[in-house]
Computed example of a mutant assay.
Amino acid sequence: MFDDDEVTVELVLEHLTITQPHEIAMYGKVFTKMAELAVYGKTARNLITSAVAALDD
């Protein structure tokens, strides 16, 4: 999401540009929810480190 005017979705072979206000609102809600579920900082670093270590097992 760039702003409240446009959302760009990258696909394997092309990209979509979303400009309809109701569609942008939907992407905004999903983005907010995903940001709430995400981990940041030290917690993210620990999660990534654990995932990399699991690859070595």
Rank of each mutant, 00 (worst) to 15 (best):
T43Q: 14
S50A: 11
V39N: 10
M1S: 08
A38Q: 06
V9I: 14
V52Q: 09
D5L: 05
D4C: 01
N46A: 14
E36N: 10
E23F: 11
A51E: 06
T43K: 15
K29G: 04
T17D: 05
D4N: 09
E23Y: 11
A44S: 09
V9S: 05
E14W: 04
E36D: 09
L55P: 00
P21S: 11
L55M: 08
L37S: 07
V12E: 04
H15N: 11
A25T: 13
R45E: 13
V52C: 03
M26N: 10
L11Q: 08
Q20V: 05
L13Q: 04
I18C: 00
Y40H: 13
D5P: 00
V39Q: 13
M1C: 05
L37P: 00
M1H: 07
L47Y: 15
E23H: 14
K29W: 02
V52R: 11
A38K: 04
A25C: 02
L11A: 07
V7S: 01
Q20G: 06
L16K: 12
M1R: 07
M26E: 12
Y40C: 04
N46F: 12
G41I: 06
G28R: 10
A44M: 12
G41F: 02
L47T: 15
Y40E: 13
G28W: 01
F2L: 06
Y27T: 01
L37H: 07
A54F: 13
R45M: 11
V9A: 06
V9K: 03
T32G: 07
F31T: 12
E10H: 14
V39M: 13
A54V: 08
L11P: 00
S50Q: 08
E23M: 12
D56T: 11
A54P: 03
I48G: 05
K29A: 07
E10V: 14
V7A: 03
F31W: 07
E6V: 02
T32S: 11
F2P: 00
L13I: 01
M1Q: 05
A38N: 09
D56K: 13
T32V: 04
L47F: 15
L37G: 02
L37A: 05
D56I: 08
D57A: 14
K29L: 05
G41N: 08
E14M: 11
V7Q: 01
F31P: 00
V39R: 15
K42H: 12
D57I: 10
A44P: 00
K33A: 05
V7K: 00
E14T: 13
D56N: 10
N46V: 09
H22E: 15
A38D: 09
Q20D: 10
Y40M: 10
E36I: 00
T8D: 04
D5W: 02
S50Y: 04
N46L: 14
D4W: 01
F31Y: 11
T8Y: 06
V12T: 05
L47V: 15
A25S: 15
H22Q: 15
I48M: 14
E23C: 07
A53L: 09
